[in-house]
Write a protein that binds this DNA or RNA. Structure first.
Lengths: 218, 218, 218, 218
DNA sequence: AATGAATGAGTGTTCATTCAT
DNA sequence: CATGAATGAACACTCATTCAT
């Protein structure tokens, strides 16, 4: 299925091939263990050409992160139904998220497992994406609270914590779904994964918004 | 600053110093980027001594993983109150988990961010720890279902998904709590983090166990 | 003195330069004591280039052995006059052998002193060359026996022993001729060395083939 | 069969144990590849003790060479029957040589394969031994010439060459006999090896001494 | 538009050697 | 008499990066 070795392609095309090769290689080996040699070979180009177009390993990794982050963000954004109730918006967003991570497992691996763990220059780039998603979730929780006629304004810190918990749960489930999940080999459809999380989260959030709390004494 | 440069220490002590230095360095730099030179320097010893005691970078990393995983597992085990209701057991376990990860942030980073992303030899070692915790959580959910007089047996796959979601949420909150959380600089006490997660999860789980489901139509 | 430092040479040329440098260095220092740094320096290139072309110290040494062994084998093969009597074939072969070892003393040192003493991977490669030569000598002895109208077939084991003795004598003389020999500084011409050995061996072989034996009693 | 780990032995005994261990290890691994750690372990002592008694790896190797060379020289010297004819003296010397090398294969390996190939400090020490033997052989050849009533004095250079050829043949046969020789597994008795060489050499030497020469024209 | 040739800087690892006890 | 603890120096090997064409 690999493209026939055809020379002289326009720059834009070659660049995408290189980014594809880089995503694959970074996902397989990790940032440090991936060598520019291997990336160039997978891309079917010579190493100097990679440098000509992408300047350095750092910039290449950054470009990969930006492309994959943008694709994920766009997928979620496009999936969210605007103008409906908060829970339905969250539901559609989750479906979009799990569908995209399932279709682009290498991209997801690079974002979630590699970029986050490589310190300063890169961790920030994913942090931005994550912050966006956390903010969207936070907004949904807030909207849900209002819809539920929540009597008292929930503390920002608590809402933030809840959003982080929900996002963390989503990330964990994305990994779980991609890695065979329950071992059966076949991956669950994105819709099921989203439903699992929605069920897990919604009622708890709803009760919290209604002012109820779990307490050790109960 | 730091321990006085004292020479000629018994092997067991030196080994712990080396493991301490390794945890710190692996957490800061990542497995690949951490150099044995830096680890030796941080430990206050020469590189050959590190090799004499720990044989190779791989074995050193393995030793670190094992020590930190055992410590975390022990902390959770010790925290769980036995013989009480499922929700209280979960609650005590979470408190133990967040207390330990807050007290040993570097160990947590190594386990969660580094070991998991370094492929075969190491990922397995943390996977075992994680599987243990997931199993404990799964058991709690099952017990809770029984206590709640759940009419129909919940599907194993769904319970597994819920357990993964909860564990993922916990991991995410541990990171969040360690990294300054809401930015105020001061980290939240473990008890608060545990409460946030408990509130988030408990009601949802309870309603699920009672047979209620969230559905898009609602 | 020495080649002008000219850069950017085609790979085939550089590879031969590296092999030349390696022969020199391995002969001077021995396999283990020779460092890749020194070989690269002698070759006038950087170390990574040596690795790029020859992969490892082991492979470099193997390549050296193969090149030198092939050259020596070819020299002897080319020197032997075919279709003449056994003694004349042996004589021409010896001349070829001593001429080549005298012209390529480092190659001879690497084959005879280094490769043979470095155990499994390398010793085998020279053993093959030596076996070829021993077989040629064995054939000559057998042919000589027939030419001499030898009445009884000589035992294979005895012929093998004789061939080993002759080859050992030749090796020893090659070293002796190369290392200044009688100390006069000027090395003896290959023809003289060959004549010494031929004289030493021929009559003994002839008489043996004729069925005569030396015995302590005589 | 290894000696029971008994402590507190007199120095002389410990030293011999170390030399034994060193001979074994140097023969197995070669000079460079043998580590002081392994030698100490084989000897059943701690490394500092090896240094206390033998000072350095170089000195240890030198001590090994001297001990083994002296043993071989003594074995040959003791074997030679004095006061008999030249050929019988040579015969008895060869028997002694092959008997000793067969009984001490590691010592022979260290002398012939290792010491000779490690350059300046060590090669000289074996060269001395070899020179002694060459001189003895040279004397035998000279004596034989006189006994045979040789009319003209043979050239020193030619005699030296013949002696080197004979010694080289002997070395080669010693290796051959030790390494299983014809592959049958059982090593030939020293007497047979000596007879092979004696037969090979004697007639040739005799005819040479009688003034006959092999010439291409014959 | 594209590449074969080349390297500076660093990494993991080993080894001979020495103290302090 | 004997050793556990410790290191300076070196070595094989790799990698991101550049130049000349």
């Amino acid at each position: 299925m690999g493209a026939v070795k055809s020379k002289r392609m326009p720059r834009a095309v070659r660049e995408q091939q290189m980014l594809d090769a880089a995503v694959l290689t970074f996902a397989r080996r990790g940032y440090r263990a991936a060598s520019m040699d291997e990336i160039a070979e997978v891309a079917g180009v010579s190493k100097p050409l990679v440098y000509l177009y992408l300047n350095s390993k750092e910039e290449l990794f950054s470009a990969v992160i930006r492309r994959e982050a943008a694709a994920l963000a766009e997928a979620v954004r496009a999936a969210v139904e605007p103008g409906v109730s908060a829970d339905r918006q969250l539901w559609s967003g989750l479906k979009g998220f799990f569908a995209h991570t399932a279709e682009h497992p290498d991209g997801w691996t690079v974002l979630h497992q590699q970029a986050r763990t490589q310190g300063e220059p890169f961790a920030v780039e994913v942090a931005v994406l994550r912050a966006e998603i956390v903010e969207f979730v936070t907004a949904m929780i807030g909207a849900a609270a209002q819809e539920a006629g929540c009597d008292r304004e929930p503390a920002a810190r608590e809402v933030s914590g809840l959003a982080h918990a929900l996002v963390g749960a989503a990330e964990s489930l994305a990994d779980w779904a991609n890695s065979g999940g329950p071992g059966a080999g076949e991956r669950p459809p994105a819709k099921d994964t989203a439903a699992t999380l929605m069920n897990f989260a919604w009622a708890g959030l709803g009760r919290l918004m209604a002012g109820e709390r779990w307490s050790p004494g109960s």
